[in-house]
């Protein structure tokens, strides 16, 4: 008897630390899932990624059983983690600074998910995310200079 997927819930939540608090409780409760069962399994499978916010996609079946898959932390979350939680004063012009090496590390980590030909192209995509978040790279304001990557670097 094949089970039918009736709903797919997508969340981004703290690895290893899911609790019945929001967004897990309200999102999964409304989907008819036993919340304790989800948090136990999710925390087990993400124990090695504590400190990151990771995307999780939960398929809910017609009997309200579920399966889920987790992904690597988004580049935006990796930047947030470096800059630090609470750095967020919303109106501050600059949200913090990361180094070019850190941009490279994120680019290499997310290479598989990015549609980029090489690491430099991937780094430019990560810089785009940093620019939106108001994060400077090696002190360079990306909204002014565009990139902190020197063309002859590599």
């Amino acid at each position: 008897m094949a089970k039918k997927v009736i709903n797919v819930v997508k969340l981004q939540i703290a690895a290893a630390k899911a609790t019945p608090a929001p967004p897990v409780g309200p999102a999964l409760g409304q989907a008819g899932i036993n919340i304790a069962q989800f948090t136990k399994e999710f925390n087990a499978r993400t124990a090695d990624q504590a400190g990151s916010t990771i995307p999780v996609e939960i398929s809910v079946f017609d009997d309200r059983s579920f399966e889920f898959v987790t992904k690597t932390p988004p580049a935006a979350d990796q930047l947030r983690k470096i800059v630090g939680k609470g750095s967020g004063e919303p109106n501050r012009t600059k949200a913090g600074n990361v180094t070019l090496d850190q941009i490279r590390a994120i680019a290499e980590n997310k290479m598989a998910d990015l549609n980029a030909n090489d690491v430099t192209a991937a780094m430019k995509m990560i810089e785009g995310t940093a620019r939106s978040m108001g994060v400077t790279v090696d002190g360079v304001d990306l909204t002014v200079e565009g990139t902190a990557i020197k063309e002859d670097a590599e």
Partner: peptide, 16 residues
Amino acid sequence: DVVIATLVALGAEGAE
């Protein structure tokens, strides 16, 4: 991703 990272930096526990 950018929106959620910003919300988390400002205190949210995650998002749907």
